[in-house]
Design a protein around this nucleic acid. Structure first.
Lengths: 144, 144
DNA sequence: ATCCATGCGTTCAATGATTGAACTAACTGT
DNA sequence: ACAGTTAGTTCAATCATTGAACGCATGGAT
C-alpha cells in the first residue's frame, strides 16, 4: 500500500515492537534486559530485534569482543518514534486506564511535569481545535 | 503489564487495527468499504471490527432494518486515537518514504497546510527541545 | 417470477507466527 | 574446576492469518 501509515505499520505494527523501542529509548540496550523487562519469549525477541535492525530503527553495536557481544541502540529513525510512543502512552492513560499511570513525563532540567499536545507547528493551534482535513485519499466525512 | 503503552498495544497492536481506525476516522463506516479499501481478508476484518467494538473504539449502529445492516462509527475513545495516527503518519512520511506522501493535512477552514508537532501544553515548548525524562520505571539513559 | 446485484458475513484448509521450555556456546571471575 | 553471564537456537504445540469459496436475506430490474 502506498500510504505512510501502512508503511509505518509494516515495521511497527505488532504487539511487541513498540514496547521494545520504548525500552530502547529509555536506555535498555541488551538482549537479556529486554527479555527480563518485557517477558517476551526469547525467539520472538530475536526476530523482532533482527527486524528492527533491518528496518534501520536499532543499530547493532559490539560492546565487547571475546566473546562477541552486541547491544542495540536506537538510530535517528528509532528516535523519531518517540512522538508516536508518547501519544500512544497518552491515549492509554486517558482511555484504557484503571489505575494511576506508572510513568509520566517531566522536564529533565526543571522537573516540571509535561503534558504533550499535538499542535500545528506554524500557528501553534492545537489540532483538536482546528478542523483538520486529510487531503489525498478523501472520503466524505459525516459527524464528529 | 501495568504500562499504558502495553495496554494500548493490547487493543491497537496489530498490523490492521490502526488502518481500520484511520479509515473509520476518515468517514468509512461499512464492512464492504473497509474491505475494498484495505484489501483485508474478510475473516480478519470481522475479527478486528468485533475487537474494536468490544474495546469501545467503534460503535455498531444499525443503518437499516430489513435486512438488518450495521455500520461502524468511531466513539470518543476512537477519536482519541487521531493523534496517534497522525504522529505515525508523520513518522512514515519522514523515515519510511520513497515517494511524496499521498495524504497531507490541512485546516478545513482556511485550507492552510498543517504540520503537527508535539509540544508541552503548559509551556508550549516543543518536546524535541526539552530534555524529557520518563519517571516511574526508570532506567539510566546514555546517549541521544 | 426469475435473475442478478448488494451487503455482511461464515467456513474451510493451508500457511505462518508466537509461545514456553529446554538447550548450546563462548567466555569470565573465584 | 565450577558456577554464572550473555545471547542466542531448537523444538513441538498452539494460535492467528490468509485466500477462496460459500450462505443468506433482500431489492431492483426484466
Amino acid at each position: 500500500m502506498e500510504c505512510s501509515i501502512a508503511r509505518a505499520l509494516d515495521v511497527v505494527g505488532d504487539p511487541w515492537t513498540l514496547l521494545i523501542v520504548r525500552d530502547a529509548l529509555l536506555g535498555v540496550t541488551r538482549f537479556e534486559a529486554f527479555q527480563a523487562r518485557l517477558q517476551i519469549p526469547r525467539a520472538t525477541l530475536t526476530a523482532r530485534l533482527e527486524h528492527l535492525v533491518d528496518a534501520g530503527i536499532l543499530e547493532r553495536r559490539a560492546y565487547r569482543e571475546h566473546p562477541p557481544r552486541e547491544e542495540y541502540v536506537p538510530t535517528a529513525k528509532g528516535r523519531g518514534l518517540r512522538p508516536v510512543i508518547i501519544t500512544l502512552m497518552q491515549w492509554g492513560d486517558e482511555f484504557a486506564r484503571d489505575d494511576p499511570p506508572p510513568t509520566h513525563l517531566e522536564d529533565a532540567a526543571t522537573g516540571r511535569p509535561i503534558e504533550p499536545t499535538l499542535v500545528d507547528r506554524v500557528s501553534g493551534a492545537p489540532l483538536t481545535a482546528l478542523r483538520v482535513r486529510a487531503v489525498g485519499r478523501v472520503v466524505p466525512r459525516r459527524d464528529e
